[in-house]
Amino acid sequence: MTRLAHVCIESVDLDATEQFYARLGLSRQFDFRNLQGEPIGYYLRFDDVSFLEVVRVSDVKAEGRVMHFAIETDDIDGLRERLVAGGHAPSEKTLGADQTWVVTCRDPSGILIELQEYGENSMQFRGGTCLIDYTP
C-alpha cells in the first residue's frame, strides 16, 4: 500500500503554528531539536498514519511553500467556528465543483488550507471529470 505519509511546511513561529493546527484537531506527536536542545520543529498528528511536519525557519521562502493542502473533516461548520473563535479569518462554506463542501483559511505562515467535507456526491468517491474555470 502507498499513501501520503506527511506534508512538511515552514514556520517562522512554531507556537502560533501549533495553536492554529490544534484548532483543526491536530496534536503534537513528537519534536525535533538540534544538538543544543533547541526546538526546530515537530510532527503534528492527523490520525494513526497521516502527519504534518513543521520546521522552523527564519523566513518563509516562496519557492519552498506548499501551494495548499486539504484536511478532511466530518464537521466543517464546527471547524470553521473554532477558527473564527481563535481569531482566524476562514472563508464562508461553499460547495466546490467537485461537489465537496469547502472552507479555506491561511495558517500563520500564509499556507492556504482547504477544509473539506465529503458528501455522497463528492467526486472523490464517484470519480469522473470535474469541470472548472481555470487559467494558469
Rank of each mutant, 00 (worst) to 15 (best):
M1T: 12
T2K: 03
L4S: 04
L4D: 01
A5N: 14
H6A: 04
H6F: 11
H6L: 03
C8Y: 00
I9Q: 03
I9Y: 03
S11D: 01
V12A: 08
V12S: 06
L14V: 01
D15C: 04
D15F: 08
T17S: 06
E18H: 12
Y21I: 01
A22Y: 00
A22D: 12
R23S: 09
G25F: 03
G25Q: 05
L26F: 07
Q29M: 08
F30M: 14
D31S: 14
D31C: 06
F32A: 05
R33M: 02
Q36Y: 10
Q36P: 00
Q36K: 14
G37V: 02
G37W: 07
G37N: 03
P39F: 05
P39H: 07
I40C: 00
G41Y: 05
G41R: 03
G41C: 05
Y42R: 15
Y43Q: 07
Y43A: 14
Y43L: 14
L44M: 14
L44R: 06
R45Q: 15
R45V: 06
D47L: 00
D47Y: 01
V49Q: 10
S50M: 01
F51S: 06
E53F: 01
R56W: 02
R56Q: 10
V57M: 05
V57G: 02
V57Q: 04
V60L: 02
G64Y: 08
R65L: 04
R65F: 02
V66L: 08
M67C: 05
M67E: 14
M67S: 13
H68S: 04
H68W: 06
H68K: 09
H68A: 00
F69N: 10
F69G: 09
A70K: 04
I71D: 09
D75G: 10
D75F: 06
D77P: 04
G78T: 09
G78I: 05
L79G: 05
R82I: 00
R82D: 07
L83S: 12
L83D: 02
V84Y: 02
V84E: 09
A85H: 12
G86Q: 07
G87L: 04
A89P: 01
P90I: 12
S91L: 05
S91G: 09
E92C: 11
T94W: 11
T94C: 05
T94I: 15
L95C: 05
L95T: 15
D98F: 03
W101A: 15
V102W: 11
V102P: 04
V103K: 10
V103M: 10
V103Q: 09
V103N: 10
T104G: 03
T104F: 02
T104E: 09
T104H: 06
C105Y: 08
C105G: 09
R106C: 12
S109V: 10
S109E: 07
S109Q: 10
S109C: 06
G110E: 11
G110M: 07
I111H: 15
L112E: 14
L112V: 15
I113G: 05
I113M: 10
I113P: 08
I113Y: 02
E114G: 10
G119E: 13
G119R: 13
E120I: 11
S122T: 14
S122E: 11
S122M: 10
S122W: 04
M123R: 15
Q124P: 00
R126I: 12
R126V: 13
R126L: 14
G127E: 05
C130K: 11
C130I: 15
L131I: 13
L131G: 13
I132R: 06
I132C: 07
I132L: 09
D133L: 10
D133R: 11
T135Q: 07
T135W: 03
T135K: 06
T135L: 05
P136R: 11
